[in-house]
Design a binder for these strands. Structure first.
Length: 596
RNA sequence: GGUCACGUAGCUCAACUGGAUAGAGCACCUGGCUACGAACCAGGAGGUUUGGGGUUCGACUCCCUACGUGACCA
């Protein structure tokens, strides 16, 4: 269809030349899909032409419409409403479009002209607690964006930078030492990441008690926070870890190992994967050489106490600390290091960081510093910033226990899927295992769609009530449409009806024409989504396609259509829709069931 | 205090990057299964796009300003 649009623009450009003797390049023209309430498929906006042509918008539309219908056989008619020229496309052209679509494989990547080598870093969890709802948005976004970029022709590496070191791990470790009594995931039956999370919570609990007590003794709040015995122990432990203390490192290995087992299970369940893992324990010392480099180049400076800073006031930012007075690095230091490490490994022309919007400033600084250092990959850095997920009760607060656990949420969604499916009773013949697989497919379809349909950069609300709804603008609605067509295809095969777009066909039903146009828009939707790094674009597309199909389905008969050519056309259309839905859903990480 | 986002139907979200009468879903009301899957379809009601200015033939979109929400920087 992109071709058709191109051709129309070119034809319009010629028409302008012939009818008005003026030169307007095809790229200058604004062409858009026609709104539903008007006849036609494409619309040229003629307002911008009034100045160069010196004529009124209607007059221009009329003249161009007449020229096109006379000279361009694919345009069968037109109408002019104010400054809009609506073009009606001949059914023969739509049929041809459908034939072309059927020759291609929708699941194959296209070349959308975007970045070629991409690293998408996402998930990047802390190893002190299990994943929650906020992480799910991150994981689904990262996975989906990576898949979308692949479909747009890029070679993509999915990376996960695990935050496995630091004070937060030490907190869990310390609490485990003190209260754990040698408990393990095996002995307790608790999933590894949840077990560690339990001790993190335990630490926080006792830590708060100590603060309270100190404050009661008249110690100032900030001092109490710093001087509470548990906190001091945790700090000590961190130093021991950095010094390579065998016992501390041993415990750290053991506990992180448990967490990874837990994470692996969750990743498997939610269907995300990674090509490359980085561990902060291995990268946290990287980046110091960049500090040296910056000092030499004179873009960084040293303060009296020996700390190193960069001045970003010209960039509209502030001064930023890069290396502490004692020579230890801060977050940004290691980020400089990992950016380079990734570049050396993958030579990316785009490096995407899926990180919540609370780090907007940090990412701006990172990019600015890389610019200061004149790094060739500075412009390739892209922060895919996404908004927080709120609950009806407000923000998720671990302290208030309102955090929605990822594993638990998936279980609840599966229960809902099971119940809904059983009530409808349409899956007789499936084995128990197949049925469970289906519930999983539906549960994740609902969850992923719910989180991905919203523009990433916007803060969003997760309403549990709404998320378990399988009607309307939801994942299961789209999955249902696919399953419905799958059933239709099975029956068509049984009845010996082939999918075919016969040469004898000349006319299309209105809903058939709309469907072809919708189908033809798939590649453009993927390209748009890739450009905007937004799965929401694909989510909207598959929804619209499913909706258009369901309208078609209720308006015309497929298998019961008496005319053989039409029957085969409708089977072909249906098959094309199913394949396109499947391909689109796949980009969202959602599976398309054969029945449900 | 400074910087940056966001504000669209009762609620949750769209709006092709400046184009037509701002669209969907949920909830509410009405109609459609002896038609291939009703997890569906059709229709109704619901809007001063937070308020106020400006730019433009044209503004949800761009600029200014006020208010609200959120995040970050010390």
């Amino acid at each position: 269809m992109q071709q058709l649009e191109q051709d129309l623009k070119a034809a319009l450009s010629t028409a302008i030349q012939q009818a008005f003797g003026a030169a307007v390049a095809a790229e200058q023209l604004t062409i858009q899909p026609t709104r539903k309430d008007f006849a036609g498929s494409f619309t040229l906006v003629t307002f911008p032409l009034t100045k160069p042509l010196g004529k009124g918008p209607e007059q221009i539309g009329q003249a161009l419409g007449e020229w096109l219908t006379a000279h361009e056989p694919r345009v069968k008619g037109f109408n002019v409403v104010k400054g809009f020229l609506n073009l009606e496309i001949a059914d023969a052209e739509w049929l041809q479009q459908l034939r072309t679509l059927r020759e291609q494989d929708v699941s194959q990547p296209q070349n959308a002209g975007g970045p070629q080598r991409v690293v998408v870093e996402y998930s990047s969890p802390n190893t002190n607690k299990p994943l929650h709802l906020g992480h799910l948005r991150n994981n689904f976004l990262g996975y989906s964006v990576a898949e979308i970029l692949k479909a747009a022709g890029a070679t993509v590496t999915k990376a996960n930078l695990v935050n496995d070191r630091g004070i937060h791990i030490c907190k869990s470790m310390l609490a485990y030492q003190q209260y754990g009594q040698g408990e393990t995931p095996q002995s307790s039956g608790i999933k590894g990441d949840h077990l560690i999370g339990k001790y993190y919570v335990l630490f926080e609990k006792h830590y708060r008690e100590q603060i309270k007590q100190l404050e009661a003794e008249g110690v100032a709040a900030d001092v109490a926070k710093r001087e509470a015995p548990l906190m001091r122990h945790a700090q000590e432990m961190l130093q021991q870890w950095e010094a390579g203390d065998a016992e501390v490192v041993g415990l750290w290995r053991q506990m992180n190992g448990w967490v990874y087992e837990g994470f692996d299970e969750t990743y498997r369940t939610i269907g995300v994967d990674f090509d490359q893992f980085y561990y902060e324990s291995e990268t946290y010392l990287l980046g110091k050489k960049h500090v040296e480099e910056g000092l030499q180049k004179g873009v960084f400076f040293r303060k009296e106490n020996g700390s190193v800073w960069v001045d970003l006031k010209e960039e509209g930012l502030d001064e930023k600390l890069l290396l502490r007075a004692d020579g230890t690095s801060v977050y940004i230091t290691q980020d400089l290091g990992t950016a380079e490490l990734k570049y050396e490994q993958f030579g990316y022309d785009s490096s995407i960081y899926v990180i919540a919007d609370e780090q907007n400033y940090h990412m701006q600084v990172l990019k600015a510093v890389l610019h200061k250092l004149d790094k060739p990959y500075a412009d390739a850095i892209h922060h895919l910033s996404y908004g927080m997920v709120d609950l009806p009760s407000g923000k998720m607060k671990s302290r208030e226990g309102t955090v929605v656990d990822a594993d638990e949420l998936v279980r609840e969604m599966m229960d809902t899927a099971r119940q809904t499916t059983q009530e409808l009773g349409k899956i007789e013949g499936l084995s128990e295992q197949e049925a469970e697989q289906l519930y999983h497919t539906l549960a994740l379809g609902a969850l992923k769609y719910f989180l991905l349909k919203v523009d990433p950069k916007k803060r969003m609300l997760f309403d549990p009530q709404e998320s378990i709804n399988f009607h309307g603008h939801t994942g299961p609605f789209i999955q249902y449409t696919h399953a419905r067509i799958a059933q239709l295809r099975r029956k068509a095969a049984e009845m010996g009806i082939a999918a075919d777009v016969s040469n004898t066909l000349t006319e299309l039903h209105e809903t058939e024409q709309e469907l072809v146009q919708a189908l033809a828009g798939y590649r453009a939707a993927v390209a748009d989504a890739a450009r905007a790094y937004s799965p929401a674009v694909v989510a909207q597309y598959v929804y619209d396609l499913a909706k258009t199909y369901n309208r078609f389905y209720s308006e015309v008969q497929v298998l019961a259509e008496p005319d053989e050519a039409k029957r085969s056309l409708r089977v072909a259309l249906s098959a094309q829709v199913a394949d396109t839905l499947r391909a689109g859903l796949k980009l969202l990480g959602i599976a398309a069931p054969e029945r449900m």
